[in-house]
Design a protein around this nucleic acid. Structure first.
Lengths: 220, 220, 220, 220
DNA sequence: CATGAATGAGATTTCATTCAT
DNA sequence: TATGAATGAAATCTCATTCAT
């Protein structure tokens, strides 16, 4: 607004909360992610998001239309994040077993480090993906993992280290399942079993088990 | 079910909701299960539960205290249901591999037939099991499956059809994961993959895959 | 009802809660007195009164019409109590100063021993004596104290131990004031002064002060 | 008050309740004071307060949190009022007897002019000062009267017009008692005595009596 | 772009009272 | 007389959204 910049570089040292659209938008999105993660779509409070982001409530409506619009933006954001992480994986020129191990570890670690992803997916599934379905953006973000897995399986079968006829989509879902369910349901599971499944030790143990299951299954 | 039983028969043909406390309570609970399943804790409407159960709204508070009390009663109810189903499983004198196959199938089928169980667990985990933790009742309902799995693994190892050193709790969680995640996340997954994972064919295929994963992993 | 008794003696050893109208009525009244004392007219709960009295809620309506009827019955009851206590005072043939001292002490002690009287009067005054005004019963219960005070003052003036021209009604109100206000307002006063005005020591001190004020004032 | 002041003048002629937070807050507080005075805490209606103040009901929750918060704000407000009036009293350089007479008259007149003070204190004492105890604000509002009375008593004793050894706190409570009880209980008292204690004549008579009691007692 | 007061619709909860047995 | 389930009206409170500045 003041000085037109040719490249999209932000005006650097402006104090927060003052006429910096991108920063405002990002602050809202960050606060909204936290709030929707913690309380779901219905439990999230627009007031709370405004307070946490240090931004006026009106701005939320200005940038995102309404609460649902904000929620969808959050969904799109986390999907973009995971796709970004996935495309950084380089597994094509590795030993198939090692590569599979890394893929499994990557998935598990991503879930541990991104609890918001787990929670928001749970919320969106409660709503039967009603919002996701309306998002062009997300459907364009194809996961590269199906392709990676397909190639990996082929190489492994050829090298006689993997069993044949494994469906890559099923395997993809299986790899996700083993971590996702454990992490997102660890609160009820911990209560039922009477022990904390969220400790670092418990997580390490689960990680090891998941690897064993996937690789054990894939043995020819 | 159809045949009238001479014992414990109560005047059956009274119009619902009229001076039959047990029926009233059950009607509320049934409607609440549907509503909480469909909309989560925050999204559920007490008015809607009253309307659907054909019961005066005041009765909900009379029997369950408040919305949270009702929600907890629903949770306790679905846990009692699954425990009831689990103890009906008889796997002790069967071939270990067959028995394991049946256990896996049982879990998968239970999840398919009880979508309310999946949804309500998702909801409760969003709340970090806050309500479940306060329930004496649920902690008394121990699942027999851990015991069943432990015994089954021992027999399988002895018979050299299962690998050794498998942790029964991890296996229990794994068996649940493979079905639970698929079913509860099938809405986003269907959207992402652009195909319906909820068709009978898709479910059958997944069931087969799950069995292969578990038994493939357990191979010595 | 079963056996007609000439004197009004109750059937002695019937188990509580079973067809003993007088006992039922008395139990309701006792519980209601507690409840109205503790929470005022609007704060009192009919359910709570039923629970505390161990009597079915319907009986309250059977015996007292409605909540207001019950409240009025409680008021009438406590007025009858204090009148009963007052008429037991025998001060006519005593030294005027001693008799006045005893009257003051009686009033103070009665208030201490009957906190329900203070609270219920406060409640009734909040309602500008709306209920009291409708009660024939209470207006027939004249306090003998005005007569006692009038006589006492006359004797004291004659004996030159009391000042002349003291209005007995004003004095009656004054004697009541000095104790009533202290006791009924001791919660806010304790908070403001930062010390507990309800301890036995504090009460004894106040009692002594009240006596000094009244007798000090009455000196000729 | 009438004369416009150049400093701190704000646009005065805005229609009430429109974008003037201070005015909105004050309007709510005024209406709430009336409502709580007339009906106590439980009998007061939030809807009625909204209607009377001409303010959207939602604003009550916006400014005061909930009904209890509003009630506490009212309590704090009336305590601030009386403290303000008290510190305007200047009695240090007056004849002790005259000064005491003025103090007594001040208290009596304040009570007559502020029936809300009497009623609200009655209500708060019914609740055993539960709300007052949580207020930091009120405990900071120390009454100057104890100090004033202490000094006054000392001067009077020195001048041989007051008796010795009078506890200033007891005297403070006594002065308050004599007016407070009469005014707040005048409805039941009027009913019992069958005459209106609230007429100007009756009030004047009571005022005179109170003065006589206090000064009569204080005579050496 | 930004602020925060204001709003209306609707949610949960409460409670005195009545009904069926 | 007695019981306890049932009711309707009304109370408190919540929340996404909009308005005036």
């Amino acid at each position: 607004m003041d000085a037109p910049s040719p490249v999209k570089s932000k005006p650097p040292a402006r104090p927060a909360g003052e006429r910096d659209p991108e920063r405002t938008r990002a602050a809202i999105l960050a606060a909204a992610t936290e709030e929707f993660t913690a309380h779901g779509l219905n439990g999230a409070r627009v007031d709370e998001i405004a307070k946490r982001s240090g931004v006026n409530k009106r701005m939320i409506y200005y940038y995102f239309g309404d609460k649902n619009g904000l929620y969808l933006a959050v969904l799109e954001d986390i999907y973009a994040d995971i796709r970004n992480a996935e495309i950084r994986l380089r597994l094509t020129d590795r030993d198939p077993v090692d590569a599979m191990r890394e893929l499994v570890a990557f998935t598990w670690n991503y879930f541990i480090e991104h609890p918001e992803f787990l929670s928001l997916l749970g919320t969106e599934n409660l709503h039967r993906a009603k919002h996701l379905k309306t998002s062009k953006k997300i459907r364009e973000l194809h996961s590269p993992l199906i392709g990676i897995i397909t190639a990996l399986l082929a190489r492994g079968v050829k090298a006689k280290v993997f069993r044949a006829e494994v469906d890559p989509v099923q395997l993809y879902i299986t790899i996700a399942s083993l971590g996702f369910f454990y992490l997102s349901n660890r609160f009820t599971l911990s209560t039922i079993f009477g022990r904390d499944l969220g400790t670092p030790d418990a997580l390490a143990e689960r990680g090891k088990h998941i690897e064993e299951v996937v690789l054990g299954y894939l043995r020819p």
